[in-house]
Design a protein around this nucleic acid. Structure first.
Lengths: 332, 332
DNA sequence: ACCGAGACTGGAAGCGCTTCCATTCTTACC
DNA sequence: GGTAAGAATGGAAGCGCTTCCAGTCTCGGT
């Protein structure tokens, strides 16, 4: 691979000049610019981005840390960020944190050590204080699906409580009074928020919360199956079940069908997130939309604005969930 | 961020010694090792990986190029690779090629320019010759889901023809004689291979191929819906439809149901790939297993063996598909 | 013709690390 | 005690680029 030296030699100009045209600096005459371009062309020169990054302390790379690389939710997010970044001529380096404090930390350090210009993170094990401290570092960052009061501007988050409320309220409006709930892991903020929304809707309708009708899952499909099974096993009468995410809803639907019941006649179900496969399910799953793509896009806008100083960018940190009505809920 | 200079000063040893302990070289006494470690600890030193990479021409990073960052198929692959790599203390830099020749090429150059030690690619726009040429470069690589005869060792691929054969043969064994086919984009090798398998199974059973019962899709769900609709609209009698991937199968199922038919009684359906959501569908989709995780894992093993010289690694390039029987196929 | 303000260009010092080479220190052994 | 092989260390030259600084050139204005 040719280096800038060879280009400079072939073009008959100095290193600095080559560097200047490489970086599109002002104060380079058209003549030398052309000479350099031709030489680059001839040599098939491609700048070594590692060297550039070392010398300039700039990488044009954004580090992305998500819990997992698979799954509909993270997939949508990654894809959106990558697309937006590429439009702006930036690149993404993505790594996974596996919902584990140690490996989340390693991931962040890895990205910083690779000289990323900024970070976009969606993680759940690291505590808030970590991010508050991290802000003292030089690498700017953004946090998704999390509200950290001390660094609000860096956060992009959804009103999860409202989402939970909307879901259960929708059931109530359809005449349901006995509503079960399969929650996410209550150690996570979004899970508790969603659950609180559920409780608020119940309270508003003067329906007491029946603890026996609440089970805690882990956001994975199996826990939806198991959760629904144990709900059914209680023998308590209920007609609807709100799930804290779509995966668990899919699991619950499976159990309902395995037990010989139908949906939505015997049981109405609602999910949360509105991931792509909710439309493939039968019946199609009503759910709460989590505008992850919008949030992902917005967080890259934030970076374009704050890190690369692009103008005319408006940033919005707070997002509202919306009810998506499909076929999984019946009137009573 | 502290540099190696400060460590060397604090520890009272030379730069070289610090570097030696950093790289776990032989010929460093326990004493100086300890001094250096302590100094690093005290300064919270973290090596600048960009500088290391520039100086050593090694990055401990593997570049990964996939068509898209979302989707069940790529997600599974990315996740598997990242996990395997991390186990070996390596990192991944992932980028997307968007099934577009230009941007695939850019992606590859980006990864090479970032000094990746090796590449893992799953792309479909770039022609075979590109990879044959690429092999002359210094960066080793691996290609998934593609058989390029000239560089067979670098390829990890599935017997797609066999998969197509297995699917249709399964229908035939269940008494189906009128079998429709929704293919992938026939410009892609895997799509034509799968289709050829379908044809072979038909031929073997002395069933003539009815062109009117073949539609070409693009592997996306909508084309499954549309494909099934136009199949139904032909008015030709058929009882089963083989789809070249699961997404299109999900789309086809949707159309079947929208038209008021049931599965598997009115129509039997089979997919291809065995992505995670096939189990969520109703009826659960029978399909052909594409061992993408195994292939992803194997290709990282290849890299560990050839790039990082790890021993005791056996590499297998060729994978066999398997039939997964679930609920979407009836006997006739 | 002269001056100064920019425009343009080149030189050279770094960015933070690795690694080759040379030097010094140990140790085992005769 | 002397020697040589090998272990341990330090010095210094890069890796390929950016960027500051200083010097040269150009040109309009007087």
């Amino acid at each position: 691979m040719a280096t800038i030296y060879e280009v400079s030699a072939l073009a008959g100009v100095s290193l600095s000049s080559v560097s200047r045209v490489l970086n599109d600096h002002q104060h380079v005459s058209e003549k030398t610019k052309k000479k350099v371009m031709d030489a680059m062309q001839e040599l098939g020169f491609r700048p070594n981005s590692v060297a550039r990054s070392l010398a300039s302390n700039r990488s044009n790379c954004i580090g992305i840390l998500v819990s997992e690389l698979h799954g509909p939710f993270y997939g949508a997010m990654l894809s959106e960020i990558e697309t937006e970044l590429r439009k702006a001529g930036k690149h993404s380096i993505v790594t996974a944190g596996h919902s584990n404090e140690q490996s989340e930390k390693e991931g962040i350090e890895f990205l910083i050590d690779r000289n990323c210009d900024a970070l976009i993170m969606l993680v759940d094990a690291l505590p808030n204080e970590y991010f508050v401290k991290l802000k003292k570092n030089k690498t700017p960052f953004t946090v998704l699906n999390r509200h950290i009061p001390e660094i609000e501007d860096n956060c992009f988050y959804l009103d999860n409580e409202l989402g939970g409320y909307l879901a259960t309220k929708h059931f109530i409006e359809h005449g349901h009074k006995h509503i079960a709930y399969i929650s996410g892991p209550l150690s996570k903020q979004d899970a508790t928020d969603r659950f609180h929304g559920h409780q608020r809707a119940l309270k508003e309708a003067n329906i007491p919360l029946n603890d026996a009708l609440v089970v805690e899952g882990d956001y994975l499909i199996q826990s939806g199956r198991d959760g629904m099974a144990s709900l059914l096993d209680t023998g308590i009468n209920f007609t609807a079940v709100a799930c804290a995410n779509d995966e668990m809803a899919a699991g619950a639907m499976k159990t309902v069908r395995d037990r010989g019941f139908t949906m939505p006649d015997d049981y109405s179900i609602i999910g949360f997130d509105n991931v792509f496969f909710t439309e493939y399910l039968y019946p199609q799953l009503s759910t709460i939309n989590f505008p992850i793509k919008d949030m992902a896009k917005m967080s890259t806008q934030w970076i374009l604005k704050h890190v690369y100083k692009q103008k005319n960018i408006d940033v919005e940190n707070f997002f509202k969930p919306e009810l998506i009505t499909r076929e999984s809920i019946s009137h009573i």
